[in-house]
Nucleic acid binder design. Sequence first.
DNA 1: CCGGCATTGAGAACGGGTTATCATTCTCGC
DNA 2: GCGAGAATGATAACCCGTTCTCAATGCCGG
Lengths: 125, 125
Amino acid sequence: MARITRQRTAITNAFEQAGRPLSPLEVLDAASAEVPSLGQATVYRALRAMVEEGVLAPVELPGEPDRYELADAAARHHHHFRCDSCDRVFDVHGCPGGLSNLLPPGFTMRDHEIVLFGRCDACAS
Amino acid sequence: MARITRQRTAITNAFEQAGRPLSPLEVLDAASAEVPSLGQATVYRALRAMVEEGVLAPVELPGEPDRYELADAAARHHHHFRCDSCDRVFDVHGCPGGLSNLLPPGFTMRDHEIVLFGRCDACAS
DNA sequence: CCGGCATTGAGAACGGGTTATCATTCTCGC
DNA sequence: GCGAGAATGATAACCCGTTCTCAATGCCGG
């Protein structure tokens, strides 16, 4: 995984232009505009490689296939919003905090995840 | 789905004794103590029927198969804790609130989910 | 206590997301 | 510009949770 190919460039562009977590299929759709012959095997290979390289971070939501987002975006603590209508996922910045107060006695918290569900701005209208 | 069988009774007992969300396999393990011949098809059938009857509610967490919990427990707003060590899921009562403040402009929130990760009391020691 | 028929259980089949295969194509060091 | 070998793409295969199949079992109304 060292060579810079048209396919990898198109995949990277897809993430930079989207600015939100993308599923493998969304990546395929977006990058296909740039490289029409793009196959899903290539997308999966690239995603895996980019996660190993630390360029992408996986985003997993309940009951759905993994999505991915650029690691530098993931580095800033944030959560996710999933639109009921278009199924797209968006980053949500900020965090209510105080979650450790909810823990039962004897439990210790390492991390937490918050997912909001509703309608995005495009679908709300 | 009208008959009361040993299998269904054992499955119901498993939930009442556990007091936490159970995966189909956890249900199979627990109820097998009471009905050794229990098959997984029966567990899946019973879970589906009980969800349709409104007795159970599904609990979905990122990257894992669905779990289920008694509907009356689910009726009270709560969230979930997943132990890194034993993979069990527990209910967590309470909610930080104020999540709608995190929404980007134009977005509307219908619901939210919070999952805490860490070690349960049994695994912390 | 019978008998109809819903339920069960073992195993096969399914479905979707993901990964492997392998001949072909393309990148890039030289 | 060459050539080694990495990357690609079409397709088959895989994984694993879930559902189906069907003969055997067992619940329960009468």
